[in-house]
Structure formats: structure tokens, C-alpha cells
């Protein structure tokens, strides 16, 4: 009824295969031998299916540390962002106070300043604070959850303030109100935020690259560009590392697809 079906389906499949190709190729290449990478014409399939690249990467001196650093900084950053955004959104939605609008716009405006151009200033701050090569240094610039605050505030503003008033009247403290009313109400949104914050910290590149010098402190997205196998033209372990890191995200993204779509479609203006 819409566009004619058969050609549209062919076109969709074609586009989907183009989009999927780099991912499939990365998977196949993670089984390549060193020789497969310099064979002409370039092969699509590995000459043998062996897990040797995966064992190489698992026994790499730093790779497990890279992954651990990324997981730790990702969890830290996502947790702090969650706490800060719930607290601020709570204050902005249920309290009237002087300067509320100005303070909210002050937070909104940070989204309009490209963070990559603040790198040198922020680097100096972190250096002065002695936080180079530390988890706190790595997560520092990711902790301001401006877009989350704005979206959560929108969400909380739809909760009648009479609920808040009567809860407080009944002796319910702010902490209780947040934990037993706000958080359960916004669980789905909060989950998607957590995943989004985790992913963006986990995958960030420039900032962790700047503030870490010791190999043992590097995060995985920097680490995989410095594994050292590429110098010997053996890219197999690099692809094995890429696939290893990607698989968990693939699973979570597929499972949380609906939540993510819901959050991203309203939240995009803040990104």
C-alpha cells in the first residue's frame, strides 16, 4: 500500500547490509591470521576458524586492565550523574526559590558550549588538582548531567505538587520522597539514562586519552588503539578486542532498545 513492497524490501536489505557490514567484517577479521591481513585480494573469510586472537588478547598484559578501567569509570560516572540529576531535577520541580530560572538556564547553556574546545582548560584544572592518572580525573568532565536534569525535570513537573506537599506533611523526608516515589515513577527513564551515561563514558576517547599516561590507567577505547599488534601488521588481536568489547553492548542495546528509543527521541535536543 505504501511504497511498492518488493523493491522497497530489497532496498531496505541493501541499506541494512551496508550498515551491518563493518560490524560483520570486524567479527570475521577477529579470526584472521596475520597473513590474512596482507593477502591480495583481501579475503572476507578467515583462512581458519581459530580462537587464537581471543586468547592473545585475553593474555595481553594490559587489555584486562583497560576493560576494568572502562567498566569502573563507566559505572562511577553513570552513578554520580544519576544521583546529581535526580537531586537537581527534584529541586527544580518541587521547590520555588530565588534564581530558579536563571540557575536552570545556566545548566541548559552548558549544552551549547562544545566540550572538546574546553579540553586544554580542563586539562590544566585536573593537572592542578593532581588528578591525572586517576579515576576521578577520567570521569570529572562527564559528571555534569545537564540533559538528564532537563528531561527528568520535565518528567517530575508532570507529578502534581500536592503529592509532594502531602507527603512532606505526613513527615516524609526528601530522601524518602525521592527513593519511594520519584525513583519508582521514573525507573524506565532512569535505566535508559544510566545505560546512556555508562556507554558515553565507556566509549569516550579524547578526554581519557589526555588525562591518563600510565598504561595501567588507560580506558579500553584508547587502549585498543595502542595494543601494539598493528605495528607488526597483525590486526587480528585488535579486532578480537573490538568484538569482545562490543558484544555486551550489542546484547544490552537489543534488550533495552525500546527504552532507549523512548528516551532518545525526546532527549535528542539536549545532546
Amino acid at each position: 500500500m505504501r511504497i511498492r513492497r518488493a523493491p522497497a524490501l530489497v532496498l531496505t536489505c541493501l541499506l541494512a547490509s551496508v550498515i551491518l557490514f563493518p560490524l560483520i567484517y570486524a567479527f570475521l577479521a577477529s579470526f584472521f591470521t596475520a597473513g590474512d591481513f596482507s593477502t591480495i585480494p583481501a579475503p572476507l573469510m578467515p583462512s581458519s576458524w581459530s580462537l587464537r586472537n581471543y586468547t592473545t588478547i585475553a593474555s595481553n598484559r594490559y587489555f584486562p586492565a583497560y576493560v576494568a578501567n572502562s567498566v569502573i569509570t563507566g559505572l562511577l560516572s553513570a552513578t554520580v550523574r544519576m544521583v546529581l540529576s535526580v537531586l537537581s531535577a527534584y529541586a527544580f520541580s518541587f521547590f520555588r526559590f530565588k534564581g530558579r530560572r536563571i540557575l536552570l538556564s545556566l545548566i541548559l547553556l552548558t549544552l551549547f558550549i562544545p566540550s572538546d574546545l574546553l579540553l586544554s582548560g580542563n586539562y590544566m584544572t585536573i593537572q592542578h588538582l593532581g588528578l591525572l592518572d586517576s579515576y576521578l580525573g577520567i570521569i570529572s568532565t562527564s559528571l555534569l548531567p545537564a540533559s538528564q536534569i532537563l528531561m527528568l525535570r520535565q518528567y517530575y513537573c508532570s507529578i502534581p505538587s500536592s503529592i509532594h506537599d502531602s507527603a512532606l506533611m505526613d513527615g516524609c523526608g526528601d530522601g524518602r520522597f525521592i527513593i519511594s516515589i520519584l525513583i519508582p515513577l521514573s525507573r524506565a527513564v532512569a535505566g535508559a539514562f544510566f545505560l546512556q551515561s555508562f556507554t558515553s563514558m565507556f566509549n569516550s576517547y579524547l578526554w581519557p586519552l589526555l588525562v591518563t599516561n600510565r598504561p595501567s590507567m588507560r580506558t579500553v577505547q584508547i587502549g585498543i588503539t595502542m595494543l601494539g599488534y598493528a605495528e607488526s601488521l597483525n590486526y587480528g588481536p585488535v579486532f578480537a578486542a573490538i568484538v569482545t568489547v562490543f558484544i555486551p553492548f550489542l546484547i544490552v542495546f537489543i534488550l533495552m532498545r525500546r527504552h532507549l528509543m523512548a528516551v532518545l527521541k525526546q532527549g535528542y535536543m539536549f545532546m
Binding site: Y25, S38, N203, I224, F246, F253
Partner: peptide, 28 residues
């Protein structure tokens, strides 16, 4: 198809850049 079109989002920037770097090598 929606899931497929969303997938590039799940891949980290530097991973994707490395994959492209190797896919776009001349000759090999």
C-alpha cells in the same frame, strides 16, 4: 531493521574508526 539501523550507536567511536581504517587500506 530498526535494531540494525540503531546498532552503529552501540559501537565505540575509536573501535569503529579502527575498523574503518583497516577496511579502507589500499591494495589489501
Amino acid at each position: 531493521f530498526e535494531t540494525v539501523f540503531m546498532l552503529p550507536m552501540a559501537m565505540g567511536m575509536s573501535s569503529m574508526a579502527l575498523i574503518f581504517k583497516y577496511m579502507f587500506r589500499p591494495s589489501v
